[in-house]
Design a protein around this nucleic acid. Structure first.
Length: 203
DNA sequence: CGTCAGATTCTCT
DNA sequence: GAGAATCTGACGC
């Protein structure tokens, strides 16, 4: 766990997706184009590069994945299942395709708004493909510092089928105290979860 | 509690 | 033409 002194500059994002995903729990997502859309991030997943079979970049550098190969701190927004937009944060320097999927958040402006699950999060925050490629440092979408939870939970990622050994990699991070966290598949509910106590060094 | 299929369109082969 | 980093509602126990 590296010390981060200035979290939300470009250097914060120029790190491995696993680290950024972990540090984004508790951060505040703001959509400046949609007044009042502010939310606390409570669940993320890391997609760690071309060798990660669950990562879109494993399919190569295409028009769709181009943003992931670009500079860190930009939004990678893609459309899936015919109806859902997914919000990701590009990490690692240019040419190194890694990203963090923002899976769930708690609205700070409308408690009745459910942002549980990546599809609902994008819909609730008003995020669409228009934001693909935009800069998170000064663009319409920004992420600000937020108090991290006292305990962080880690589990395998959701919805990636059997991408070989990658299906079980512990790359999903969430605040176990948040009701907005989406329920993982049954095979993950028992035993697959770990918890990180901040400050104890345990991982 | 659980499983299952349908919605609906984009991307890459 | 297949399959997708999802969500919902229906149905079975």
């Amino acid at each position: 766990v590296a010390e981060v002194t200035t979290p939300w500059d470009r250097a914060f994002y120029a790190r491995p997706a696993e680290c950024v995903a972990r540090d984004l729990i508790g951060a505040v997502l703001i959509h400046h184009g949609r007044p009042g859309r502010r939310a606390r991030i409570v669940e993320t997943e890391a997609y760690v590069g071309a060798h990660d079979l669950a990562c879109h970049a494993s399919k190569g550098r295409t028009k769709r994945t181009e943003v992931m190969f670009g500079p860190p701190g930009h939004a990678y927004v893609y459309f899936i299942y015919g109806m859902h937009w997914m919000l990701n944060v590009v990490t690692m320097p240019e040419g190194e395709p890694q990203a963090v999927l923002i899976r769930a958040a708690e609205s700070l402006t409308d408690s009745a708004l459910s942002l549980s699950g990546p599809g609902r999060l994008a819909r609730g925050m008003g995020i669409t493909g228009e934001l693909n490629g935009t800069d998170l440092l000064g663009g319409p979408l920004t992420v600000e510092w937020g108090e991290p939870p006292p305990v962080l939970a880690v589990s395998p990622r959701i919805g990636i089928g059997f991408s070989g050994a990658w299906a079980d990699a512990p790359l999903r991070f969430y605040d176990p105290g948040s009701p907005a966290v989406s329920r993982p598949p049954r095979r993950f509910r028992a035993g697959a979860e770990r918890r990180i106590e901040w400050g104890t060094g345990a991982k």
